[in-house]
Design a protein around this nucleic acid. Structure first.
Lengths: 240, 240
DNA sequence: TTCTATAATACGGTATACCACGAAGTGGCA
DNA sequence: TGCCACTTCGTGGTATACCGTATTATAGAA
């Protein structure tokens, strides 16, 4: 990320015998996007006071590239809701309000419940089996000491269901929502009673999917997410 | 769109008495985005043979601006799936495959069924009444002569349900999906038997929402959209 | 005529200079 | 000391020149 990128092999005397088929097709803008996204997601902005401003010129110089690709990356991050550009003021990292987080979770509920429906109809048994494997280490609800680890498995569980739908649109849309959820995750950890209930919900969901019970799987997934939304509505006072 | 934009009032001798409070805050990139989006949506690409290439330089000169804002607009359109940029080849308008259209409709089903759920829980009676009003002129299924008009009302109906959810995330995501649907719409028109069934579905949906029957409204909306997806799967051979 | 090697062209990607505007700093005047 | 006009500086927005490379055109040889 801070390494100055090579300027492309200028005269490689294209050998017709040896191979070099895997060109680096990624563009500076793409790499800048990835780097900046990682930085922003890692900022732990919800535990930090004050607004965080990003300076295009500074970022460009840090990345060792010009403003142009940085701007393209920023534009994309802005469209995805991570950042907000205020003309002649600066670019600020967006902190979602409680209402916005609830909307996010609700939309996620919509996407994942549809994904669960599709999964019961077309996923293979082998794929579905992976879901249960993910929770093998947590089955007895004995997880209070490793909530952080559970939190990651938790998100992965939901992401897996989405991916099993094999619907690119659902997958891509959810990807973005999950990225936002990861930012809030740190603040949600530590409520172990919720984790217990979460585990039970997940087990029921797995059972429904294994049984190809479309309606039940869909409903359980939806209610699980909506339950989280309600929990946030009630208890997430740390979101302004 | 082809007018050469003014270069910003340079020395307008800011009068402190008269008013000009409504500044034009929109940026060239924003306006270019809107213009290009309209052009693309109006291209009727699914009825046209061959690929359509867009040239940044040409577009920029047509719009009377430089490539920079055009590129930003293009980047956004690419992320939204309207356009695909091939390095050193050009920018092409995307034609969705049948499989992709089905995925689009499925995702739409997910979003709108959740919207219907929310609507039954929080929309006012006045808002809901508007839904029925939209179909006043079609109620008897006597619409064969004005299918085009119906098609517009049709999309508007679904968009209204989404909007009544008051969930910004759902609304924005659906907006994009609908834009794609509009591009395909022209090819879907003319199957009047489907229109008849569509009307009946809509009436049932309205009834469920009016009765605040959350589960039924959600299911009807979902099945209506999934029905369209299946119809496309069976009959939309014109998609590649 | 056909194939190949070389040159010209055109594209998206990138760097950079400049602009207008807002904000913050600074000086002078009351 | 406090307020106001002016200056300076910094920001994102825009224009433009340049780059490397894939494509196409062209010319020459077989």
């Amino acid at each position: 990320m801070t390494s100055s990128p090579p300027r492309g092999q200028t005269a490689a005397a294209a050998s017709r015998i040896a191979v070099a088929p895997l060109e680096d097709t990624s563009t500076f803008a793409d790499r800048a996007y990835t780097a900046l996204r990682d930085v922003i997601l890692g900022l732990d902005i919800y535990s930090r006071p004050g607004e965080i401003r990003l300076d295009e010129r500074r970022l460009a110089s840090d990345l060792g590239i010009s403003r142009t690709p940085v701007r393209e990356a920023m534009a994309q991050l802005e469209r995805e809701g991570f950042v907000r550009s205020v003309p002649r003021r600066g670019i600020y990292v967006v902190r979602k309000t409680k209402a916005e987080v609830i909307e996010l979770i609700t939309a996620w509920a919509a996407l994942e419940s549809m994904a669960a429906r599709l999964t019961t109809q077309s996923a293979s048994d082998e794929e579905i089996a992976k879901l249960r494997a993910m929770f093998a280490t947590f089955e007895n609800g004995r997880l209070h000491a490793k909530l952080d680890e559970y939190s990651e498995v938790n998100i992965e569980f939901h992401q897996t269901i989405i991916r099993m739908s094999r619907n690119r649109v659902l997958i891509d849309l959810a990807e973005n929502l999950f990225a936002h959820m990861r930012m809030i995750r740190r603040k949600t950890i530590g409520e172990s009673d919720r984790a217990d209930r979460s585990i039970r919900d997940h087990m029921n969901i797995i059972q429904a999917i294994e049984g190809r019970d479309t309606g039940r799987a869909e409903a359980l997934v939806r209610d699980h997410a909506l339950g989280l939304a309600e929990h946030v509505a009630r208890h997430a006072d740390y979101l302004d």
